[in-house]
Design a protein around this nucleic acid. Structure first.
Length: 785
RNA sequence: GCCCAGGUGGUGAAAUUGGUAGACACGCUGGUUUUAGGUACCAGUGAUAGAGAUAUCGUGUCGGUUCGAGUCCGACCCUGGGCACCA
């Protein structure tokens, strides 16, 4: 995941890009053609904030930051193909984003509707959520108001089903991320039910107006004693016009905050209206209430309320003295006392006329059927996922390529006029976007009638740019829409590495966007990222890493003090990739010590002169046991790098190998060739983690080519064979001794050796052996009593 | 409330397929080298008892399966993350 150019790298970046670089360098050693690109998620609010604070134009601030951070990355030795670098604020990049938006507009995948924004009444501008602190504007300190504005939306809900079901096939993604996305999409199956609206005389409305609700529990329909609508529902608004008390209540609801966390803790409140609806099956008259807990955004903004079998409805009914009717009875011994609480489990229907006796599941189908026959209901699937609002009332973003004409309405910018370039020479006057007052940008001829028109001044949500940049890396200079045919060689991304904080929004939008591009015939496959490595967070004092961290959290200070290899090694050794951990400087000393030790072992070895060619037959025990260790390490590292993606254990196993090398006392000249081989393996295996020192050591060890062009060593299984094996002996499952057995010993021999072993013999005295278990090459367990 | 991931020494952690729990490091203790400190090297380091050999206990808690459980099963506790008046 490419970074936001905030100014400097933090340890979270170091971890992310080191992990990616280790994968990159390992795969190159294995002979793969690897593209490791880098770019900059360059649009966004911090650049504007810096401009407002320091008077530096966002473009310059951003480019300065990019230059500095690029230098830091180069110093860390990341094997990046800088020829593919771009920033999302380059017009050559966002040009194609505007292009796709227009294509989607033609297709009907884009629409405009009103949505709520945070309005700062003093600064007269829209605020981003981050700019609202405790309900007040970050600069004006004025209480923020809710305001409705026309905004652009992308129909992500049209892809909800595919985005959900595809998750089941994504084996390369961690379960936790898939689970988070499933929750976010929030699919629920139910029935949409129409309640005919009654007029003041109690008769059906002459236009056959209906109030539509969504429920996942149609089996409880006969227990509905009222319906409740959201404060923003048309029925509520109509009632407010007739009754000032209702109007006052709606006003009160609208004043409360938009933050969802606060909504949940809000006390349930409601008010009866003078409206009534007719029960679609019984014909009974049900009152319509306005309730503050009904959300206009979900379903149809109205619910049927069944206080007997929904806890929330139960509490509401209790508070306002509405009838509670039981229509579901437990089928097992689940307690059911409607005086105390609602009975929410499925069960068997009662008080439901023809449906009595059916189970909840049977009744679901039967009632849905009955409603369908009367044209009063239909089975539907509802999603929690909302369409993606992409308009931002901000300056530093990609201009939305639309024109507003008084005569023609909203007119898209013609394709040949793209890109709509964002002016970069700007000055901020206060908080407002400079675009709003910039005539040279605003004024434009209407593409349809040629008359005076004005440009859209909103820009795209920056998640738009980060939804497709990875595809652009395949053809960063393409002059055709978005990408060119090179995308078919590279895409989809084999291995995507990034922080857990992007588990939902970025990764869901990117998946959606990829499908949009696929449906334009631009990219191969259905999903953008085959394998996802979700990093845990790097914490400092229990908090997420940020610029504010101390010296131990400043990569620049650490690079100056320890060098890139040590920082990289310490970072990889600290914890497995998916785990969050507290960063501390403590690990650096250990990593430095290890690299120094590797260095001195190589120097010491070559000081002894050239080792002869390897002659396995001539090795002493010291030499062949070192060889065994070297090849065990090689096999484990291969598995850890390639399959397990766990690099802390690669570092520790190379540490073991280096320890073994330093302890090895060559018995003859042939053993020195085993040391040579072991050092070469150690250097190669750790090189993805510590590329600089190993580059040098590789040459010292006689490498003729540069290490980066070398290949991962071939496995030699014969090095693993050994004449005798140590086995553990247990008595009743407890370790009582260890024995050396010949590698080819049969069970009888092993058991004899085991029983003869001194401590084991003691534990067998006066006991009868009931069972003998031999696990080849591992252990013997004698069950006695 | 629902979903996901975790819980192992003083610390970061390892144990991949049910087979020696604590590899590898950090830290600490003692020693060698050094005028001293640091570095480097050597030894020790889960708890308890013991001079030691060794024994007992020990992977959140309780129970189960198994010759054998950190690993599998059941119930529960705790931590972190996600979703949530979602009808």
């Amino acid at each position: 995941m490419f970074p936001y150019p905030s100014g400097q790298l933090h340890m979270g970046h170091v971890r992310c890009y080191t992990l990616a670089d280790v994968i990159n360098r390992y795969r190159r050693l294995k002979g793969f053609n690897v593209m490791q690109p880098m770019g900059w998620d360059a649009f966004g609010l911090p650049a504007e904030n810096a401009a407002i604070k320091n008077g530096i134009p966002p473009a310059r601030w951003t480019h300065d930051n990019i230059a500095y951070m690029r230098g830091q990355m180069q110093r860390l030795g990341f094997g990046i193909d800088w020829s593919r670098e771009f920033a999302t604020c380059d017009p050559e990049y966002y040009h194609w984003e505007q292009w796709l938006f227009l294509k989607l507009y033609e297709k009907g995948m884009v629409y405009r509707k009103n949505a709520t924004v945070n309005w700062d009444p003093v600064d007269q501008t829209v605020l981003a959520n981050e700019q609202v602190v405790d309900g007040r504007g970050w600069r004006s300190d004025a209480p923020v108001e809710r305001r409705e504005m026309a905004q652009w939306f992308l129909k992500i809900t049209a892809y909800a089903e595919e985005l959900l079901t595809e998750l089941d096939n994504m084996d390369g993604w961690p379960e936790s991320v898939k689970s988070m996305q499933r929750n976010w999409i929030g699919r629920s199956e139910g029935v949409e039910i129409d309640f005919p609206v009654l007029n003041a005389e109690g008769a059906k409305d002459e236009n056959d107006a209906v109030l539509t609700v969504f429920t996942t529990r149609p089996d409880t329909l006969l227990g509905a004693t009222y319906v409740a609508v959201a404060p923003q529902h048309p029925l509520a608004l109509a009632a407010a016009e007739r009754n000032p008390e209702v109007a006052a209540f709606l006003e009160q609801c609208n004043q409360s905050t938009t933050a969802e966390a606060d909504m949940a803790t809000l006390e349930k409140a409601g008010m009866a209206t003078d409206a009534f609806v007719e029960h679609p099956l019984t014909g009974e008259r049900l009152p319509v209430w306005v309730a503050n807990f009904v959300l206009m955004e979900y379903g149809s903004g109205a619910v049927m309320s069944v206080p007997g079998h929904d806890q929330r409805d139960w509490e509401f009914a209790r508070k306002y003295d509405i009838d509670i009717v039981q229509v579901i009875a437990p089928v097992d011994d689940t307690p059911c006392d409607l005086e105390a609480e609602a009975f929410t489990a499925p069960g068997q229907l009662v008080n439901s006329g023809d449906f009595d006796g059916l189970t909840s599941a049977e009744a679901f189908a039967a009632i849905a059927q009955a409603l369908a026959e009367r044209s009063r209901g239909r089975r539907i699937t509802n999603y929690r996922l909302r369409d993606w609002g992409v308009s931002r009332q901000r300056y530093w973003g990609c201009p939305i390529p639309m024109i507003h004409c008084d005569k023609c309405g909203v007119v898209p910018v013609p394709e040949q006029d793209l890109p709509v370039v964002l002016p970069t020479e700007v000055e901020f006057e206060g908080v407002r976007s400079p675009l709003v007052t910039m005539e040279s940008f605003l004024h434009v001829a209407c593409p349809q009638c040629g008359g005076d028109a004005r440009r859209e001044t909103d820009t795209f949500d920056t998640f738009m740019e980060s939804s497709w940049y990875y595809a652009r890396f395949t053809s960063p200079d393409a002059n055709t829409p978005m990408v060119d045919e090179r995308v078919n060689y590279w895409a989809p991304v084999d291995h995507y590495v990034g922080g857990i904080e992007h588990a939902i929004l970025h990764l869901l939008y990117a998946r959606f966007y990829y499908k949009l591009m696929r449906d334009e015939g631009l990219v191969p496959g259905d999903e953008p990222f085959n394998r996802l490595l979700m990093l845990g967070m790097v914490l400092q004092d229990g908090k997420k890493m940020s610029k504010s961290a101390g010296d131990a959290g400043d990569p620049q200070k650490l690079l100056d003090k320890y060098g890139a290899d040590t920082v990289r090694t310490a970072m990889m050794f600290a914890a497995p990739p998916d785990q969050s951990f507290e960063w501390s400087e403590a690990g650096l000393e250990g990593a430095l010590r290890f690299l120094k030790k590797l260095w001195s072992q190589v120097q010491e070895h070559v000081a002894g002169g050239t080792a002869p060619a390897l002659d396995v037959a001539a090795l002493t025990e010291a030499g062949s046991s070192l060889r065994r260790k070297a090849y065990t390490t090689l096999a484990k590292a291969d598995d850890d790098y390639g399959r397990r993606i766990q690099f802390n254990t690669v570092v520790s196993s190379v540490m073991e190998l280096v320890n073994a090398i330093s302890k090895c006392e060559p018995g003859n000249d042939a053993d020195r060739s085993a040391v040579q081989e072991a050092l070469q393996i150690a250097v190669l295996v750790i090189s993805p983690v510590a590329p600089h020192i190993t580059h040098q050591l590789w040459q010292v060890l006689g490498g003729t080519d540069a290490l980066v062009t070398s290949r991962w060593p071939a496995m030699d299984d014969t090095a693993l064979t050994q004449a005798s094996i140590e086995m553990v002996v247990q008595v009743n499952g407890k370790v009582r001794g260890k024995i050396e057995v010949p590698a080819d010993a049969d069970q009888a021999v092993i058991l004899d050796l085991a029983k003869a072993s001194e401590n084991v013999h003691r534990h067998l005295q006066d006991k009868t052996v009931r069972k003998e278990i031999v696990v080849p090459n591992k252990l013997v367990n004698l069950v006695v009593s």
